[in-house]
Design a protein around this nucleic acid. Structure first.
Length: 436
RNA sequence: GGGUCGGUGGCAGAGCGGUCAAAUGCCCAUGACUGUAAAUCAUGUGCCUCACGGCUACGAAGGUUCGAAUCCUUCCCGGCCCA
């Protein structure tokens, strides 16, 4: 039995204030020039398998749906809890790209409202973000995503925010929504279980998060949701809601999770990922700092290198071949997927020059400073290489600072600034040029 | 509502009147070794000062004391138990 909200049920039942309208209406499209769905078996198989952790209800069911010729509406949600999208998100976005190519209707959903609530975290209650912080984080997101999907053209991806409907959610609607989930179901979520065991608090609002996310799917009336495997619980909750409210079998594609270079989970909040807003050189460098055992993972999840080739690489490495060149290949391919081949070549060259041959990089920011003698600690702080003078002093004393290639270990050292560039280097990667 | 335990640096977590800018671990930074790897080892890790030293900081505000993260009062927040 499915519950279908409608305006006429206002007397007793609960009607949702917000329903996705016919998308073609707003975009001035008619059904005639609606993009045609393409049945490209190879692409579809790729979508169904590469980087996929799980598909609900099943891979076979989804394959059948994709081969049916029906135009599906698909979305992935991203909460603006950090300034940058990272390559982990890119996995989902690239999956969306495939669907866009296949002619399906794709929605890039920003969870600007859900970000306020905060998706529950393993450790503790997430801090609730303010509208202002969210807006700041959101700057540049569309641009970052546009590297991978097309927000224009014949079959544009639509960029939406869930504030649009969640802010209008009435209390009676919310109560109705909550009635579809039991406390026991919520507690099954292992992060809650863990917090209970450890005696850490669980906020009641955190229970609502999965429902709000699920409601996105109802409001957008989607056929499929894509998300990281960590979103499985939320997505399945949404699947249940879609069934109850719209009688729809929402499909779910849960992506495998890519570790961050530091070996932890990649996270917007921690900022430890390869960000889509990074320079190509940075992307390459961060990719190179992955440990060797991440090479296969990175190649599979973040690039288009054929799986057979990856297998071969793995066996080469296990035979004792130096993994460095394979890691460089991975780094190259990652940059290429996001920025294109030209940028990848550039990034690789720069890596080889700066890091492997220890040359000074070509592009170094130049800081203008008044001519005269300056303390080195001050210069380090002003150039942003050190956060405070105390820290700058420690860096110098620790032998981490070079001026024009000369190591300086006197923290009281002064540098004469004139209209000639002076190179200051902090550690291996921090460079700045100073002149008057 | 009652009882009880607790709130310490980016995180975890010691300290329970002076020797506390606060043990230890993690994270992070720099150095060594390297493949900018990883692992390991070393050093550092509040801010300001050339320095003596100063300033801010142990949930918040007051108080006791020569002296408080440590004791007292009130308040705020959380866990657990009871109603």
């Amino acid at each position: 039995m499915s519950f279908r909200p409608s305006a006429s049920s206002a007397s007793g039942g609960i009607a949702f204030a917000w329903r996705e309208r016919d998308p073609s209406a707003g975009l001035g499209m008619t059904n005639k020039n609606m993009p045609k769905v393409i049945l490209d078996k190879e692409l579809i198989e790729k979508f169904l398998t590469r980087g996929v952790e799980a598909v609900y209800p099943s891979v076979d069911a989804l394959r059948e749906k994709l081969m049916s010729g029906e135009r599906l509406r698909v979305y992935q949600g991203f909460d603006p809890t950090g300034k940058y999208l990272h390559v982990g998100h890119a996995m989902g976005i690239r999956a969306l790209r495939i669907l866009q190519q296949l002619g399906h209707e794709v929605i890039f959903l920003v969870g600007d409202y859900t970000a306020r609530v905060g998706d529950p975290d393993k450790e503790s209650v997430r801090k609730m973000l303010t509208a202002k912080e969210i807006e700041e984080n959101l700057q540049g997101w569309k641009e970052q995503a546009a590297q991978l999907i097309d927000f224009e053209g014949d079959n544009p991806v639509r960029f939406k925010r869930n504030y649009e409907w969640l802010a209008q959610l009435k209390l009676d609607e919310l109560i109705k929504l909550m009635s579809h989930m039991t406390v026991q179901q919520m507690l099954e979520r292992d992060m809650f279980e863990r917090r209970l065991e450890e005696g850490n608090p669980i906020g009641l609002h955190e229970f609502i998060y999965p429902l709000l996310q699920g409601y996105d799917g109802v409001a957008l009336d989607v056929d499929m949701e894509i998300g990281g495997a960590d979103q499985t619980f939320n997505m399945l909750t949404g699947r249940e809601l879609s069934r109850v409210y719209s009688g729809k079998e929402k499909f779910i594609r849960a992506n495998k999770m890519m570790d961050a270079p530091d070996g932890r989970t990649m996270s917007k909040t921690k900022g430890n990922g390869i960000n889509l807003g990074d320079s190509s050189e940075d992307m390459y460098g961060k990719a190179m700092s992955y440990s060797d055992d991440h090479i296969a993972m990175g190649l599979e999840l973040l690039t288009d290198v054929p799986l057979e080739a990856i297998k071969e690489i793995q066996s080469e490495i296990s035979k004792g071949v130096n993994p460095m060149n394979y890691k460089k290949m991975m780094a190259f391919e990652i940059v290429k997927t996001i920025r294109g081949e030209e940028e990848a070549v550039k990034a690789q060259r720069s890596f080889e020059a700066t890091v492997q041959n220890k040359e000074v990089p070509a592009d170094i920011p130049v800081l203008k400073i008044k001519a005269g003698n300056h303390r080195l600690t001050d210069l380090l702080v002003e150039s942003g290489l050190a956060p405070s003078k105390s820290e700058a002093g420690r860096l110098i004393a620790g032998g981490g600072v070079k001026v024009d290639g000369q190591k300086i270990d006197d923290k009281d050292a002064e540098v004469a600034v004139a209209d000639k560039e002076i190179l200051i280097q902090k550690g291996k990667r921090g460079f700045v040029k100073i002149r008057s």
